[in-house]
Simulated scan of single mutants.
Amino acid sequence: METPSRPNILIVDDDEAITVALAAFLGRSGFDVRIAEDGRAGLLEVEQDVPDLVVCDVLMPHVDGREFVRRVRARQLWLPIILLTQVGESWERSAALDEGADDYLNKPFDPHELISRIRAVLRRTVRGAAPLRSAERLRAHDLTVDRTARRVWRGDEELSLTPKALMLLEYLMLHPQEVHSRDRLLSALWGFDFASSSRAVDHRIAELRRVLGDSSTQARYIETAQSLGYRFLAPVVAG
């Protein structure tokens, strides 16, 4: 029987202490790993041999992480990219995602959390959902989100959502079938420095369900994973 190939991961980071330790950990976790010492070297690595996924720092000399993402996407390469960032502002992280990153993790991070993110992104890639990140519109059942115009429709009816609820809906639709903890959603949309509790997420989920006509007991779009968080149930397509 042929042995399944190990996913090839490219780590792009100028901190050697991080790359050496992370490469060893990923190797033990079932991945083949290459290292590039900055964004410029990372672009050369991608040009020579496109990896299955890139883990890329944001703050680097020569070519930073966001510029790395822009240049990779400009070449019409939709390989998955996870950014590692120390930036605390949620708008900065949202901008990076808008430019084409698939996910991000704040430094310092738990390597096991990174493994979880890598596997989740690779599963989406296998399912063919990777192009969602580049899509101008997201569709699920009769729900449509226009990411450029920041507008939402259900069928022919345009819906009214607060900006944070729209950001939450977009994030969930970009990561369908995944369970997201309240803490992760707080980090993604409010930032770790947001002075509030996870109830902020619950309030926006309640707003989404009310506007979408969804139900916590018979969910069509957003399911509550008991004691874990929330999951977007419906299949999502670009378009």
Rank of each mutant, 00 (worst) to 15 (best):
V46E: 07
V46W: 09
D49V: 00
D52G: 13
L53R: 07
D57K: 05
D57R: 01
V58R: 01
L59R: 14
P61A: 04
H62D: 13
D64M: 10
D64Q: 08
G65P: 10
F68L: 07
F68I: 05
F68E: 10
V69E: 09
R71W: 01
R71C: 04
R71L: 15
V72S: 04
R73I: 07
A74F: 01
A74S: 14
A74H: 10
A74T: 03
R75V: 00
Q76W: 06
Q76E: 13
L77A: 01
L77S: 04
W78K: 05
P80V: 10
I81V: 15
I81A: 06
I81M: 10
I82S: 01
I82Y: 04
L83W: 07
L83A: 10
L83D: 05
L84D: 06
V87N: 08
G88N: 14
S90E: 13
S90L: 08
W91P: 00
R93G: 02
S94Q: 15
A95C: 05
A95M: 07
A96W: 09
A96V: 03
A96R: 02
L97Y: 03
D98P: 00
D98W: 03
E99W: 02
A101F: 02
A101Q: 01
D103M: 03
N106M: 12
N106T: 15
P108C: 08
F109K: 02
F109A: 06
H112C: 01
L114P: 08
I115N: 07
I115V: 15
I115S: 01
S116R: 15
R117D: 05
I118T: 05
A120V: 03
V121H: 02
V121C: 12
R123V: 13
R123Q: 15
